[in-house]
Amino acid sequence: MTPSRVSVDRERCIGAGMCAVTAPEVFDQDPGDGLVILLDTDPTASRERAARTAAGVCPSGAITFREPGTAGS
């Protein structure tokens, strides 16, 4: 099984919602606690661009990209 390229840390997430606004096909907010939900763990190139922007603007550093060639956990 291929390890997922995008991962989210719900412990770090503060629910600012920037990811859900920036890359709504990849991220959403849980309707209950407002924290991040990952909709697409391996986004296509077109979605990946937005997802990377989302990772960049995330205020709490809760979104991580696993780069090709790095070891899976």
Binding site: G15, A20, V21, Q29, D30, D33, G34
Partner: peptide, 12 residues
């Protein structure tokens, strides 16, 4: 204090 509020200020 922030956690219980987050779900009430989501984008949706």
């Amino acid at each position: 204090y922030r956690k219980p509020l987050v779900g009430r200020f989501t984008v949706r």
